[in-house]
Nucleic acid binder design. Sequence first.
DNA 1: AATTCCAGAGAACAGTTGTTTACTGCATGG
DNA 2: CCATGCAGTAAACAACTGTTCTCTGGAATT
Lengths: 208, 208
Amino acid sequence: MSHTLGIRQAQKQKTRQALLDAALGLLEEQSLSSLGLREVTRAVGVAPTAFYRHFRSTADLGVALVEDTLGSLHPMIRTTVSTADDSEQRVVRAVELIARHVDAYPAHIRFIARERHGGVQPVREAIREQLARFGQEVKDELAKDCESAGWSDDDLLMLANLYVDQMLITASLFLEAQESTPEERDRVIQVATRQMRLISIGRHHWLD
Amino acid sequence: MSHTLGIRQAQKQKTRQALLDAALGLLEEQSLSSLGLREVTRAVGVAPTAFYRHFRSTADLGVALVEDTLGSLHPMIRTTVSTADDSEQRVVRAVELIARHVDAYPAHIRFIARERHGGVQPVREAIREQLARFGQEVKDELAKDCESAGWSDDDLLMLANLYVDQMLITASLFLEAQESTPEERDRVIQVATRQMRLISIGRHHWLD
DNA sequence: AATTCCAGAGAACAGTTGTTTACTGCATGG
DNA sequence: CCATGCAGTAAACAACTGTTCTCTGGAATT
């Protein structure tokens, strides 16, 4: 079904991606609500009017950016929860995976952390939607675990969302520590690991 | 020592507060990095140049706003942790207090949630600093509790920061639910309460 | 080979922005 | 009571913004 795009469509998607990439770069030191359309086109090297061929507005571009950046998170979250070692090893491995992802795509998680509560409503909504989806995915993974026996659906979802939020907080801490000393980075690893561990302990004794 | 201000200084502080209030209002539907200085003065009804008598830039105003808005949070956080009922009642009461605070000062917590990871570095730093202070305060309160016997200082601070982050997440959820149905609000209360409870359970079994 | 289509260019538009300069009126301190 | 200080005003600046309109070159379709 995936017909090889013509030269025409290929070029279009290329500049579209260039616009998205340029925007993501510019958003490292400002928020979406202050991002100008001309600013983006200037960074790419196309005329301002070309922008409209791809997006209705910068808010529209922001929504597209949400799909892109959170799409890259799906595999990480999946593997973070599903690695079936012992409970303690799982926590350590999760924090490690988060750190690795932040190193690989710092701009992605900066964008999400910044715009999750940012000034552009449609973007906030898109992020909220995607994170709810993540919550469901994590819940499904948790349900497979034998430790989840006797848990209600509501409680599983509650725990899943707690994990998702904690992942974002941890990722954000790694991002801040990135332009700091390596010792600070190690400190973040230790704190994040212990917080995750405490949540896991709470999970273990939930049904008492 | 607090000498009654002259008419001069009183007027100055009055317009300064007017600028802060107007800015906080405008920031409900945009972020600080897109807030224009003229926009603020227009909302107050003074000349654009008057702005410079009070702030160097909008970023400067943002930092001042952090002190204001997070100052109002100090009493809440203090009482949230220190009410010395039984553990379960404490959780319920904490969530209740957060809900009440969000209803009282929605713009305050919106500002903090938005600019904590926002596009203006000095403001991010100011918020980070204040939240670290909160973490210390919570830790001091936790240390008084008999349940904290045998805990290391690092672990206490780790738990305190976990609580602070969880409070912010919960407050943010209440804010979103504010312009939604009352049933949604109740759902937020239930989820937040159970998340807090799970953390408390983790705390209780931490030393096993 | 002729025609249609469309991504991108270019110019122009009215509005807005931050910042500077010179000013005014009034509360304040000698 | 008079001189100084200073909060706020007014006008002007170059630079920038989003959006519209018209146009063009080359891929896509027939």
